[in-house]
Simulated assay, not measured.
Amino acid sequence: MTPEELRAFYEGYIDLANKREYHRMAEFAHDELILNGTPVKRDDMVAEFHKHTDAVPDFHWDIQDIIVQGDRIAARLVDTGTPIAPWNGFAPTGASVKFEEVGFYQIVDGRFKTMWYLMDVDLIRRQLAG
């Protein structure tokens, strides 16, 4: 894939997440992949999305930066939402959160094979504490 195609691929993936069209994930991820260093099935990755959006129904990913090099994508996003259920070990407080997430991805044969993401958990904790 060209750098432009990889950029469009990633933007389509984030659009899928924001629209909650998880049934389309086969277009973006292999049946088996590495997620944060752990081998998982695509269904496990989809379950991770559900975990976030069930607890934070208005969760939104907003792409700030995308860097493409070879078969790899690095992205910085700003994530927002208001938890209504326990999420990542935090009780809902009625407060909304806004934090940065960084993701690193390897694309093999047109789909994600390796995915790493990091979120600013300390910032989330401070925002939920008020």
Rank of each mutant, 00 (worst) to 15 (best):
A75Q: 07
M119Q: 12
I84P: 01
L123A: 14
I107F: 08
G81R: 02
L123T: 13
G81Y: 04
I84M: 02
V97A: 03
A75S: 15
R76V: 02
W116E: 06
Q127S: 01
A75F: 04
A75E: 11
F104A: 06
P83E: 06
E100V: 08
N88A: 14
I107T: 07
K98E: 15
D122C: 01
F112Q: 02
R76C: 01
T82A: 06
I124S: 01
Y105N: 08
Y117H: 14
E100R: 11
A75W: 09
L118C: 11
P92V: 07
F99D: 03
P86L: 00
S96I: 05
S96V: 06
A95Y: 08
S96L: 03
M119A: 10
W87T: 02
R76L: 01
L118G: 07
P83S: 05
Y105W: 14
N88M: 15
P92R: 05
G110S: 08
L118P: 00
T80P: 04
L77Y: 14
M119P: 00
G89E: 08
P83I: 05
A85W: 00
G110P: 03
V108I: 11
Y105D: 04
I107S: 08
K98H: 11
G89W: 11
S96C: 05
N88V: 07
I107M: 13
G110D: 06
I124Y: 03
Q127W: 05
V108T: 13
F112W: 10
Q127K: 05
G81F: 05
F90G: 03
T93K: 07
V121H: 13
A95N: 13
Y105S: 04
M115W: 14
Y105L: 13
D122M: 14
D120L: 05
Y117N: 10
E100G: 07
V121G: 00
W87H: 08
M119R: 14
I107R: 09
V78T: 15
K98S: 15
P83R: 09
G110H: 07
D122I: 07
D79R: 02
F90W: 07
G94E: 13
D79C: 13
P83N: 07
R76W: 01
L118A: 11
F90P: 01
D120W: 10
K113Q: 15
F99G: 02
E100T: 10
R111H: 08
L123G: 01
R126G: 00
A95S: 09
W87Y: 11
T93V: 02
T114Y: 09
G94L: 12
M115K: 11
I107Y: 07
S96R: 13
D120M: 07
D109E: 15
L77K: 13
T80Q: 06
M115Q: 09
E101A: 12
R111C: 04
G89C: 09
D120E: 11
P86M: 00
A95D: 04
F104V: 10
Y105I: 11
S96W: 08
W87K: 05
N88D: 08
V102Q: 13
Q127M: 03
V108C: 03
F112M: 10
S96P: 01
R125Q: 12
V108Q: 13
I107N: 08
I107D: 08
D120Y: 10
F112G: 02
R126M: 07
A95T: 02
G110I: 06
R126F: 05
